[in-house]
Amino acid sequence: MSRSFDYLDHLEAQAIHILREVAGQFERPALLFSGGKDSITLVRLAEKAFRPGKFPFPLVHVDTGHNFPEVLAYRDQLAEKLGEQLIVRKVEDTIKRQGLTDGSGKFPTRNALQTYTLLELIEEFEFDACIGGARRDEEKARAKERIFSIRDEFGAWDPKRQRPELWDTYNGAIRKGENVRVFPISNWTELDVWQYIRREQIELPDIYFSHSRNCVVMPGGQLLAVTPHIRLDPEDVTAVRNVRFRTVGDATCTAAVESRASTIEDIIQDIITTKISERGATRLDDRLSEAAMEDRKKNGYF
């Protein structure tokens, strides 16, 4: 009898344990699904945790209206195939309902506005726990967040009030109005996620693989997909490049990287040899200040 248990088994076991704790401790949890590789990984882990039963939570998508169409198609197909409930709420509607000011300028981001829709969702469905695919290796503020992260009624994270998190015993007890964000893959790195996707043979949206796309070449060399959501100016340089996306977020703030990687194996090689971190390569929104993520989290962001 072989008892080999490698690091992916460990990470998987921890994530499954966390998902089952969510099911055991909360009455109305939800899994926040973005269509990105991290939330797709969460879905696979949920299958392992709860099949042949149904998921004890719906999949919830906050649609910014700036998503890549390939990702939305993937999302709908996956929910269909799983036979699980999918709840979609649009940032567009929140903007209208609450009279918010939409993002403007050249790359109008709705990243901060997502938070309003998420808080509306939490209120509408009375979710007490929202499971997300954030990882601690993504960013320095995330590196300090607990796996069960308590948020107040404004969704705000208070780094100084974090509960100590001991062993694998998770304290999900909350007061009325509070909710918990749960991060089962906190301890995974970008490379771990890809290696897991390879091992599990998980299907991904096409935009993760090399394809030719018309892009704006930013002064810093970053490539941003030309979509109806951004404003093209005469001085902009556009070019058709072979690109793929390392993260899948809004089309207005997620840059593509030049790559010929057309299989998961290629991507893993790409990551091993690449010298730029995931968020550094692809996110325009974290660069604004050194504490950008910390500030957004304090305001209720994931």
């Binding site: 503020a141 590196a143 780094p159 100084k160 301890n187 910390e294």
Partner: peptide, 20 residues
Amino acid sequence: TDGLRAEREQGITIDVAYKY
């Protein structure tokens, strides 16, 4: 390793940080 703003400002570490 010092991730939070207060930590950088004061040159100290306040909370457990995880690194990989």
